[in-house]
Structure formats: C-alpha cells, structure tokens
Design a protein around this nucleic acid. Structure first.
Lengths: 132, 132, 132, 132
DNA sequence: GTGGTCTAGACCACG
DNA sequence: GTGGTCTAGACCACG
C-alpha cells in the first residue's frame, strides 16, 4: 500500500499516517494479521521522524486497529464484529450531520453522501483504486 | 441553550464552543436571525477569556454560520439551501466510514448510525433532548 | 437616489454612506452643485444615527466631494478636471493590481476588469441602473 | 524585501503587513515556494508582537497567498491561474473607478493608471524598484 | 524552535 | 457597550 504524506497539510503527520493505515485496513489493502513495517523502516521510507511513526502506531494500538508487542512487529488486528460504536466516532458523525444540516442538506442527501463515502472506502480495493 | 466547556479536553476551547453552536443551529435551538450573546457576556458565563469566544465567533462567521460585525451583536445566519457539500466535510465522512468498517459495522449499520445522528441533531429539540 | 445601508455589513455605516454618495456623483445621479439632504433628515430616512451621517459628510468634504458651510446645506462639489490622482487612490489601485496578479490575472484581464468597472460606474445612470 | 510598518497609521499593523507581503508576491520579490521568516523572527525584526504577525500570516493563508502549518515555516503559495476575480476585488475596483471619475479622470486616464499600477507591481523587481 | 492556544489587560472605532 | 486590535507572557503539540 502506498502512503502519501503531505508536509504542507495542517493535519499532523502522525495523524495523516494513522488515517492512511485505518483506510488501508477498511479497504482490505491491509489484511487481518498482516504485519506492518517496523517504525524505523517506515519512517525511512516516508522521510519522516521515527518518533512520528511511533506516535501513529501507538494511536492505532489504542484504537484497537493494530496489535503490538514489545518484541514482535505490529500486526493488523482481527476485524471486529458487533462492536459498539466508539463514542468518539458517534460524536464525530453527529458533528458531520450538524454541519451538513447547516449547509442545507436534507436527510436523504446526507444519507446518500454517507453511504457513498462508506462504499468508496469499502470497495476501493475491488474497484482498483488506491488508498492514496 | 446550555453550553458546556471542558477546559481539560484536548479539543481547543474555541473549537468546543464553535461545535456547540453549530449543533445548536442544526437542532433549531438557535433559530435563524436569533442573536447570540455578546462575546464578553458569553465569556463571563463560560468562565473563559473574551478572546477565546471571539475566536469561535470568528470561525463561525468565516464558515457562514453566523453574521457578525463591529456594531451589531452576532446573529445566526439564514439556513443555506442546496449547498454543495464542502470537501472537508466529505473527507471527514469518509474517515468516519473507514473507522466504522474497522469497528465491524456493515453498510446498513453505518447508514443507520449516520441517519440516527442526523435525526438526533435535526430533531433534538422536538424530542425533548438538550444540546448538552 | 436611493441609498441602501446594510446593517450586517462589516463595513462601517458611515463608510457605506460615503461610498454610496461617491458613486452617486460618479454616475451623475447627483449633479454638480446639487444640494444633499440635511444630516438630520438623511439620518431619519436611513434609520441611522445623526452622528454617523455627519461623519460621512465630513469625510466627503475632506475628500473634496462635497462643499459644506456652517449655515448652508451640503452641495455636490464641481467636478474636477486634470486633478492629480490622490495618493490614497493610487495606493488602493496598486493593491488591487497586486491581488489580481496573485489571483492569476494577466495585464489584459486586469485591464478589462478595471475598464468594465469604470464603465459600469460611469454609465450606470444612462443604462437605467441604480446606485444601490 | 524590506517591509516598513507605520504604527501610527489608521491601517491595522497586521493589514499593513499582509498587504506588503501580497505586493511582494505580485512583484516576484517573493517567489513561489519561497519560505517566509518565522512569525517570531519577523515580529522581532519589525518591532511588533508575535501575535500580530501571526494574524497577518493567518489572513494570507486564508486568502490562499501562503501555505502554513504548525511544523513548517510559511511558504509562498504557487501562483494561481485563471482564477475567477473575487467579488470583493471587483467591488473595490468599482469604488476606485467611481473615485477616479469624481477626481476628473476619464476612461483613458483611469485605464492608464490601472495599467501602470499593475505594471509597477508586476515588474517592480525588474525595473529596480523596491517594495518599500 | 515553531506555530497554536489561552489568558489578561489595554485602547480605540463605531454608534 | 460592543467587537477589533495590540501587547505581553505562558504553556503545549509537533517533530
């Protein structure tokens, strides 16, 4: 999977990296139990600081997206089933909805948008797109 | 409308305030053309600095949510109609979708969640809930 | 001439008023030596503060657009000929040019834009438009 | 590029600074991708507060003139091409035209003035002038 | 070291 | 009285 970091983005680099990996997992480009590159090698590949990659990995581990042991490499966590929606995610969805309403979208338009976003993520791999 | 600020949150205070007001507008607790409290009085009520409230108000003005100037107290902007979805919003929705997938939600579950979030925002006032 | 004041504009009211009158003069809706309404009556008509109209009139007098005596009403100043371009105007034109360049306009595009703006002002009355 | 700030001007310091940089970009004294000094060092050089420089930089970022984020020093944004003229710019040009008419300029004179202003900005560096 | 955020206190333009 | 601007000094996230 190719990961592109935009050094000019206002989004912190570790967050760009975290999101890229989350999207890679969602789109099945990164399979369950697949090992991630070591923080050092990924840092070298991306031309970013080693600590920055570590921070992204740590956030992914906290979020349950990857599993890390001290001695072993990080691996993609098994896909969850029936998980309760994390509060933070529900809150962000609610804020998206609020902004959508203020921008004149009705329920149908928002729904379609959300559905399209989901499908785009979910089927990206199948349709030949890349995570970048 | 009650607004609660968490000074210990990682989210900046001005952003917490901005989001609270966006949600207030979306849920119709703040009606079009309704005046907002002055930055000074709201700052006093919330126990935060006047400049912090001003920053939130300025962000809301830039985003087209309120109308504000030197003379008149800030008022809620008229609701937009048929506005194109801002790119930033679409991108955030896509990330929500990716995280939802990783957390075991299928399209139907995500859709329902998004729909529920939308309805919660849109109809909060009608169903008796409060923004806080 | 109809003058419209936008109380929600970020532009100060006295400046909105000053500009409306300048445009009225430029478009010949206000002829040379034509008397302007008294500050009090104009304030009443527009629903603004008396001092605000006075401030606009004072700025117009300073700029040489109108002539005011203590006892007489304000009248539109005779059109100038061969006047040197005021420094402030030249400076604002230069800033417009700079912003136009940064926004990708070339000399021709800027020239056409400026010319069009001039013609619009100059011929508004003839083409049936209003200064508002 | 030399920047001169007049603390006694009616024009806010941050706006003086913003305009100086816009003119620097238009006149090619500041090239695309060229880094700007850090807000702190520029503040020290100009003898103004760090926050004031930050405000100017923020306005430039919002206007698309520079790219800035928490990590990297601000850089001049790539020049736009074929951008639509911002409404605010068109309006300011129209007011310049109205004032020019009142000051006795005819279409040809205004055109020449606008053209000269444009060229002065655009070719200042080539002709040996400075921004201050 | 950098920009981002927050507080505090001041003065001013506007009306 | 209000928001806008400016200064001063502090802490923090990012890297």
């Amino acid at each position: 999977m190719l990961i592109h970091i935009d050094p000019y983005s206002e989004k912190p680099i570790f967050e760009q990296l975290r999101e890229a990996i989350v999207r890679g997992i969602a789109s099945k480009q990164l399979a369950e139990n697949e090992p991630l590159p070591s923080a050092r090698s990924l840092a070298a590949d991306l031309g970013v600081n080693f600590h920055t990659v570590n921070k992204a990995y740590d956030a992914l581990r906290t979020g349950g997206y990857i599993i890390m042991n001290k001695r072993t490499t990080a691996v993609v966590a098994p896909m969850k089933t029936h998980t309760a929606v994390p509060d933070a995610l529900a809150e962000r969805l609610a804020l998206c909805a609020a902004e959508a309403i203020c921008n004149g979208m009705d329920e149908k338009a928002f729904d379609e948008k959300a559905f399209a976003a989901f499908c785009a993520e979910s089927h990206r791999k199948l349709t030949g797109g890349t995570a970048e």
